[in-house]
Computed example of a mutant assay.
Amino acid sequence: MGLLVLSDAFPRNRHADQRLGPGPTERPKRRRASSARRNDMTTNLPSLTAVRAFEAAARHESITEAANELCVTPAAVTHQVRALERWLGVDLFIRKGSTLCLTPAGETFFTGSNQAIDLIRAVAQKVSTPDNRVRLSIVAPPSFAAQWLVPRIASFQSTRKIELSVSIRAVSSEKSWRTSDIGIVSSAETPPFLERRPFLGYRIIAVCSPRLLTGPNAIRSLSDLRKHALLHDEGLKQVDGVDWNSWLRGAGHGPIDTSDSIRFSNNFTAYRYAADGHGVTLAKDVLVQSELARGELVNPFEYSDRSKRTYDFVCTSANFDLKPVAQFWAWLQREAQQDRALMPA
């Protein structure tokens, strides 16, 4: 059976042409309509240069620092911000002394523009050439960065063309997140636009120098803690709600007078002070693994308190789709799994 090909050899019916769509003479009108729609979309968008200038000024809370980042003059940034304010019809900034503060409208516009720039950056990295070196900015709490992240991070970089920038601070507000791609948190509160993925749990244990296990005041039971200085990590109380007496209560022991104890705002300092033989401190087990392995610290008791908190990986939804972010997240999970295998259940 042959193939029947129907060609346009017969004359068109004029009415059929009208039913099927516009004829050749109407095509320019369709192009003009499409162009008009594009013009409408353009006029409904502010200048992206102005948006970028505003976002940088809001993030740094400084016109001068925004100008340095964008490699332009402060006057140019001010001009772009004012142009954006005129376009929006609202004030975005107010000055309080030497501080540049966002108005409520500015806060709203900053949140949206910051997320939009993140999305553009994510798309740009997706389509960029694979040989380009990618920069990944990480923010992490000081103790976690010093005790857990930094000692391991060389294993992540060794096989990847990723330039890492680690900032040491807590992520508790939108302002603290503004210059970061990804972060590590253990606190309850983070900016609402961030997604959280837990990856590392921990227990709270007592640690001290092995020197305190010998001599006339040797630690052999919980009652022996009365003979030694009890060191306090204020961050542990703030984040986990745990102090010495709540920990002892969980261990089935009565309270101990801790009024003359030393208090530290940084747990790394408390760990170091304990390792030098000056007292006993409570510690997150995942942060003192190296000291325990080297014998600088010991855990004199079987009891440990499992924290309700975890260390969580945080990121915007747009950044989660980036390849380097996915690689870092996978690496974090592998490192955490190795930690769990080394620690007692």
Rank of each mutant, 00 (worst) to 15 (best):
N39S: 14
A57G: 06
D224H: 10
T25C: 02
G215V: 05
S265E: 14
S246W: 04
E291L: 14
D285E: 11
A9R: 13
R59H: 11
S186K: 05
A67G: 13
W87N: 09
A341E: 06
A170P: 00
S187N: 09
I219P: 14
P210F: 00
D91G: 08
L200A: 05
G235Q: 04
G183Q: 01
G279Q: 00
G250W: 12
T179L: 10
N319W: 14
K237A: 04
W87D: 04
L212I: 00
R249M: 12
P11A: 12
R31A: 07
K96Y: 11
W247R: 02
V150A: 04
V51D: 09
L70R: 15
C101P: 01
E26A: 13
C101Y: 08
A318E: 06
R226Y: 03
G235C: 09
N114A: 15
G252L: 04
M343L: 15
N114E: 04
G277N: 00
E189A: 07
P130Q: 01
R196E: 04
L45M: 13
D131M: 07
I256T: 11
A293S: 11
D285A: 08
M343R: 09
P142M: 10
A140D: 05
E335H: 01
G106C: 12
P191D: 15
I262M: 11
R31V: 02
S176K: 04
P104L: 14
K323A: 15
D240C: 11
S221H: 13
L6P: 00
L100I: 09
T258L: 11
R59S: 03
D131I: 03
R294L: 08
G201Y: 02
E85F: 10
T179G: 12
G21E: 03
P210W: 02
S223F: 03
P130V: 01
N132V: 07
P324Y: 00
P151W: 05
L297V: 06
L230W: 09
N44L: 14
S158I: 08
A75G: 07
K175R: 15
Q333V: 12
A229W: 01
R38S: 05
R86I: 15
